[in-house]
Design a binder for these strands. Structure first.
Lengths: 218, 218
DNA sequence: TGTACATCAGTGAACGCGCGTTCACTGATGTAC
DNA sequence: TGTACATCAGTGAACGCGCGTTCACTGATGTAC
C-alpha cells in the first residue's frame, strides 16, 4: 500500500522521506485519528532517526497539513474529472460527482480526515483555504449548470445548492462511516444508496427531473 | 460559564469533582479538540492533585465518554421536547427539531464534538451506542409522522428520511462551523437559514408541503 | 446527643516513558572546472 | 574523465518536560450504637 521500492537496503539518504512520512501519517491517521501519532513515531516507522523529519516538516501539524493539502489537490482533480463539463447530461454528471465524493471519503479516508476533521485552521496554513475553495468552486460550477427552483419560485442560488449538497455528502460520509467511530443509527447499509436517494429527493425538490429525462444544455 | 460555587476556599474534599472535571474537559475540547488535553491537566485546572481524577475516571477516554454520554442525554431530551408529539403540526415540529439540532451543536459544542467527532467507539463504551440510538429513534418517530413519497412513487421509509436529515444536519453543523476548523467554502452566513432552506427543498422533494398547509395527524 | 469507626475522596511524592527539539556531526550527491 | 568542494539530507546523543499511573497516606463524612 505504501510505495517502498528499493528500500530493502538501508541507505544514508532515504531519498523519498517527505512522501514516506506522509504515507506513514496516513496510516496512523486511519488507525488512531489525526492527533494519534507523533513526529518521532512517524520517523521511526519510516525507518529514520527522530531528527530527520525536521528537514521536511516544522512539526506534526505541518505534516498533517501537507497530507490535507495533497488531499485537496487530488480531491479537486477527481471532482473536476467526474463533472466532465456536465457530460453527457448535468444530472448524471452531478450524481457522478457525489459518487466520487463518497469514494474519496472511503478510499482516501486519511486525507479526508486531515482535510475536514483534523481541526486544521485554513487561515493559518498556507494554501489550505484556497485548496478547499477550489474544490468547492467545482461544486458551484456544477450547481450553476444544473439550475433549480426554490419552493418559493425563485431560482436557486448555486452557492446555496452547493452548500446543501456538500453538507449532505459530508454528513453521509462522516456520520455513517465506521472509523470516525460512532456509526450512530441503524443505517449501516450502502452509503452510496443513502446519498443518492437523498440527492434525488433534494433535486426533485428543486424541480430537477432525474433519470434519463434530462439532457445537458451547455 | 462553569459552575464554581463555593470553590473559594480550598477544601480537602472537592465535593463535585466528577462534574468539575467534565466542565474542564468541555472547555478544553472547545479550545483544543477532543484529544487536546490530559487527565493531569484537567486535574490541575480543577484545582486538584493529578491522582484525584482516578477516583472518577479510568483514563482520559472515560472522561470524554462521560461528556459524550451526558451530551446524548441532553440531546435526546431537547429533541423530544422540540418534537413535542408533532404539535401543532408535523412540519413545523420537524423544523423545530432541526433548529434544536443546530442550536445544540453550537451551544453544546464540546458535547457535540465528544459525541460525533471524538472517534469514540460506541460499541466499546457502555451505554454510548444506546444513547445515540435513542436520539436517532426520535428522528425516526418524527419522520414516520411526517410521511413522504419517494420520486418513484413509493412511500418513503422513515429510517431513510431520518438518515438523510441527520446527515444534512450534521453536515451543516460540522462543515460550516468555525471551530472544528476548516470553514470550507464561502458559506459563513446563517447556518439556520442554510439548514432550513435545504430542509424545505428536501421535504418538497418528498411531496410534503411546508408552511401552514399541513396539520398533524397523530 | 456523643463517640468510635468504616468508608470515601482527596494528597503528594515518585517512577518510567515517550515526545519535541537541538546540536555537532557525517555520508551521499551533484556540479564546476 | 577526474577531482575538489558545496550542499543536502541524514545520524545519534542529549536535554528538559509533561504525562500516566502507583502508592502509602490522610482528612472529612456519615452512621451504628
Amino acid at each position: 500500500m505504501t510505495g517502498k521500492k528499493k528500500q530493502a537496503r538501508r541507505r544514508y539518504h532515504h531519498g523519498n522521506l517527505r512522501e514516506a512520512l506522509m504515507d506513514v501519517a496516513r496510516r496512523l491517521i486511519i488507525d488512531r485519528g489525526p492527533q494519534g501519532f507523533s513526529l518521532v513515531e512517524a520517523a521511526t516507522l519510516a525507518g529514520v532517526s527522530p531528527a530527520a523529519p525536521y528537514r521536511h516538516f516544522a512539526n506534526r501539524e505541518a505534516l498533517l497539513a501537507a497530507v490535507a493539502l495533497a488531499g485537496y489537490q487530488r480531491f479537486a482533480k477527481d471532482l473536476e474529472q467526474a463533472w466532465n463539463d456536465g457530460q453527457p447530461d448535468a444530472v448524471s454528471a452531478f450524481m457522478r460527482m457525489g459518487e466520487v465524493y463518497l469514494t474519496f471519503a472511503r478510499d482516501e479516508r486519511a486525507s479526508y480526515i486531515a482535510m475536514f476533521e483534523a481541526g486544521l485552521k485554513g487561515d493559518e496554513i498556507g494554501g489550505l483555504q484556497q485548496a478547499g475553495d477550489r474544490a468547492f468552486a467545482i461544486l458551484i460550477k456544477a450547481a450553476t449548470a444544473l439550475g433549480g427552483t426554490l419552493p418559493d419560485g425563485q431560482p436557486a442560488p448555486p452557492d446555496l445548492m452547493a452548500a446543501h449538497i456538500w453538507a449532505l455528502s459530508h454528513g453521509v460520509a462522516s456520520l455513517f462511516t465506521s472509523s470516525p467511530s460512532d456509526c450512530q443509527g441503524p443505517v449501516t447499509g450502502d452509503l452510496k444508496e443513502l446519498f443518492e436517494s437523498g440527492m434525488m429527493i433534494y433535486l426533485k425538490g428543486l424541480g430537477i427531473r432525474s433519470g434519463s429525462a434530462h439532457r445537458a444544455e451547455n
